[in-house]
């Protein structure tokens, strides 16, 4: 196997008494689409927040391309090549869609015109209709919001993209389109993806490898079909404590 693109070692994060992340060690391999699943409150979003520097971990280390990034400010981590999207979309409501995406491009291209060009290119890559580019963030649909969030993150040209519940709230047809889009991002843009998802259909169809978290710990990992038959995982989802 090749080197890990991202690695966490014994990562710990607690909020008061709750251990949201409890000694989590995972590896993300270059080029893969890793599924990250687990019941509500398992600590998936918190893990993302630690990786991107939104939260300072209380223990453990994070490596990105063999370089330690623990404790770096977010903007530096992003600059190194990590992007993320949000469980609940965070649009720039009063900016045009094009401007919002271009703001992401500005990280790599300081010239505004150039950044806008790049933004248009990404928008069309993701299949965003041209006519919404001039609309403001508050005027578009949820599916479009999710695509804009993705586009904005992609515009920073990440090597690794952390995607938090992109499927939630989408209609079945939209979901299929989203699955295609994610695969396209991975194969054509060579972006490694970590996909947090509750919708099993989405995870199962795009991930070759899945990590399951429960109560802040990794309880299983492996191929999707193996993991879904793991008794511990079943118990975690059914809410019964393993005996």
């Amino acid at each position: 196997m090749s080197e890990a693109l991202l690695e966490t070692r014994d990562l710990v994060k607690h909020f008061g008494g709750i251990k949201a992340i409890d000694s989590v060690s995972i590896k993300v391999m270059e080029g893969e689409i890793l599924g990250l699943i687990g019941p509500n409150g398992a600590g998936k979003t918190t893990l993302f927040n630690c990786i991107t520097g939104t939260y300072k971990p209380d223990g453990g280390k994070i490596f990105f391309r063999q370089k330690e990034i623990t404790g770096l400010p977010s903007h530096e981590i992003i600059k190194l090549g990590i992007g993320r999207t949000w469980q609940i979309v965070r649009p720039f409501k009063k900016m045009s869609v094009l401007d919002a995406i271009a703001t992401g491009s500005l990280l790599r291209y300081s010239d505004v015109e150039k950044a806008k060009e790049k933004a248009k290119e990404i928008a069309s890559f993701l299949g965003l209709p041209k006519d919404i580019l001039e609309k403001r963030g508050e005027e578009i649909t949820l599916m479009q919001h999710k695509l804009v969030d993705l586009a904005r993150a992609l515009a920073t040209e990440p090597k690794l993209l952390l995607i938090d519940e992109v499927g939630a709230g989408l209609r079945p047809s939209e979901l299929s389109a989203m699955i295609d889009t994610l695969q396209k991002i991975n194969s054509e843009r060579k972006v490694t993806l970590v996909v947090v998802e509750h919708i099993m259909r989405l995870v199962m169809s795009i991930s070759k490898r899945v990590i399951v978290m429960h109560e802040g710990r990794v309880i299983a990992q492996g191929k999707p079909e193996e993991v879904s038959n793991d008794p511990q995982v079943i118990q975690a989802y059914l809410g019964i404590k393993p005996i």
Binding site: T52, S74, W86, M95, D99, G104, L106, R152, A153
Partner: peptide, 22 residues
């Protein structure tokens, strides 16, 4: 660039940080 960055900070500071803005 600075104008775009400032506006994105106004809209959502955390999201701005997450596209690499100091």
């Amino acid at each position: 660039k600075i104008g775009y960055y400032l506006k994105s900070i106004r809209e959502d500071e955390l999201a701005a940080e997450m596209i690499g803005i100091d």
